[in-house]
Design a protein around this nucleic acid. Structure first.
Lengths: 369, 369
DNA sequence: TTGTCTAGGACAAAGGTTTGTCCTTGGCTC
DNA sequence: GAGCCAAGGACAAACCTTTGTCCTAGACAA
């Protein structure tokens, strides 16, 4: 049933909403006939005037199929559960939007379950949502990697359709992720081309899967390009970024400290920051240390946000396809839900264009002017 | 049923999940007995060993009551629909968190419906969610005021439990809002005490209800305090804040322009900004005009966010009780859902403490030093 | 002995849809 | 006029729980 009553349905005072049987009675046919007509069953043949009358009566009574009864019968709820940490970081909002939009296009409702980061739950915890028929599948966007010692976390979920969003799950074939290495390379290529030799990456805790992947990619790419890399992990907050920068500066100022193999090095001259929140802290720390951006330190945010263009130093960033990630995850999950054979599962890598948003926070390294 | 299987349930290969009848068969009783025992019906008396066996079997089979069947029978879905515009602005995230948290505490699931701001829907649009038994009630957090000419928008919703969050709906008694006037007064009292005479308010479009209420409150309070007020409306974006500031500056520099009755005035010396996004634009514009903060212009954000503390000029803000708004809205909605008589409805005003977060963007007016 | 009461539970209806199967009737062919 | 077929629908089971009502047997009192 797709037609929509143009006018708020006039309601009978007694019952809450019209049912199939109410229409059937009014028209003088069986409920099964009404059901088939309203659902457009092509196998059903019905006289034109009855067909017409059924639709008209449904319209008049403001009929809306009861989603519960339908779902119960069809064994299909039409709902997706989205487990997500509700953080200030705008990436989650974009991800959520992309997912919601796509789900609604494909006729699914989305219920949001907040994953409290403090007390990280194993993903199998959320399986009850499918077991209780509250949802058809799980979109798992918790950010933490699963500790290797978590037993049964994988098997516990195998029976229900699920997809890991923006991270890799314990089993293969159910991940939907972006090309984090490409993002890192975008940054590295840009600053390397300008002549930077020593770079840093300030990012979240290693327990976050994307962080882990970015670090790996950065190490590999730096080795290939012969760049010297410092990686610092910190909380995904302004405070965290500030504190990590302090560490970076302290470390750079003590000669002889071991930074990734090359001894006696000084401060990195270009730095990528994993999240917008941290970026504020990094900029504040640099400002406090009287290190001008980009003259003393080039800066690239791995989160794109409009506000970066309006800061005292507009910050260059790499824009990740977050909405696409959300919608691709929904598509992947629905595919798993509707698949007859679930063996077709394969990881998804979002390959939408990822681009460097050029602003003013990147320049040549201090020596090279 | 509250107990949780400590271990992922071993499943029978054949059926997806255990049903009441499976347990009943295994134990050798009728399903009604199992249902009553598992639900802790106090009126049911049962032999201890049967009681014990039912619980044990349920545990073993990993029984989870089918939420659909239960909801169908009980006429109560245990779900709330939250209609919200998913914006970058962190206030929505906080609001969402507060609501989700409270709903989960009270045993309700929340489904999120995105309200696309471009094509504003009348609230009655979302009524189908209750009509189709997808949710028990509606949390309406769309931001736009309802155009007075929208017909039937009120009546269309009267039959279903609903609550307007952070805005006033067309009918009275279903609003949950914060004390916006108090927030405005917090700002005004602070700058007035420092000697400011001319103030400005840069905020979103008038169609946004909170904006409307803040403007009204500001006009009233300024009149009472004999302050000169300029109000500027703009998009809730960085760009909007930037552009509004340009307007403000142009206006201030053309002598004789009529700013709220007082002719020949010059620039305001203190400005409140309605949203974080706009604040970035305002600061950029001020910076571009070489107007130092707070020396030339004091600034207060009406959105509190941690990142404000880390900007080049840390920005003073007023912190609104957004999480409390979310949870109070959920409480109010659940009250309406569970109320036998819906006449008890009354508007809710969140009176949690609202505080000024002092940072460095407010100082005495230019002349007063 | 008969009646009453209570513990302990069984029965079945309901909640609103969907869908496989079956039935009737009229038209057509031969 | 018999047989067949398709159109046009009716019937009823099933999805899984909840809950009002009813039943039976033993205990106890009179």
């Amino acid at each position: 049933m797709t037609a929509q009553p143009p006018v708020p349905a006039p309601r009978k005072a007694g019952r809450r909403t019209a049912r199939l049987v109410d229409i059937a009675e009014a028209v003088g046919v069986h409920t099964s006939t009404v059901s088939r007509v309203l659902n457009g069953d092509p196998a059903q043949s019905v006289r034109p005037e009855i067909y017409e009358k059924i639709w008209r009566t449904a319209q008049q009574q403001g009929y809306r199929p009861n989603a519960l009864a339908r779902a119960l019968k069809r064994r299909h709820t039409g709902a997706l559960a989205f487990v997500i940490p509700l953080l200030r970081n705008p990436i989650w909002v974009r991800l959520q939007r992309g997912a919601l939009q796509r789900a609604s296009e494909r006729g699914y409702a989305v219920m949001i379950i907040e994953d409290e980061m403090d007390e990280a739950q194993p993903p199998a915890t959320y399986r009850y949502l499918v077991d209780e028929s509250r949802a058809d599948g799980l979109l798992l966007a918790t950010s933490l990697r699963i500790p290797a010692h978590t037993e049964g976390s994988a098997e516990g979920l195998l029976a229900v359709p699920h997809v890991y969003v923006n991270r890799r799950g314990p089993e293969r074939g159910n991940d939907v992720v972006m090309d984090e290495p490409a993002a890192v390379r975008l940054f590295l290529d840009h600053v390397a081309a300008l002549g930077h030799q020593r770079v840093a990456l300030i990012d979240g805790p290693v327990e976050v899967d994307t962080v882990h992947r970015r670090e790996l990619a950065a190490r590999r790419a730096c080795a290939a390009r012969n760049l010297q890399l410092t990686v610092l992990h910190a909380d995904v907050t302004e405070e965290g970024g500030w504190e990590a920068t302090q560490r970076l500066l302290r470390r750079g100022s003590t000669p002889g400290s071991a930074v990734d193999g090359v001894a006696g090095s000084t401060l990195p001259t270009a730095c990528a920051v994993g999240s917008l929140n941290q970026m504020f802290g990094v900029m504040a720390a640099l400002r406090g240390a009287r290190l001008p951006v980009p003259e003393a330190m080039s800066l690239v945010s791995l989160d794109e946000d409009e506000c970066l263009a309006f800061l005292d130093v507009p910050v260059t960033s790499v824009a990740m396809p977050l909405a696409e990630l959300g919608s691709a995850a929904v598509d992947a999950l629905i595919a798993r839900i509707e698949a007859q054979d679930p063996v077709t599962a394969a990881d998804v890598m979002i390959c939408d264009p990822m681009s460097l948003v050029h602003r003013d926070s990147v320049g040549p390294p201090p020596g090279a002017r």
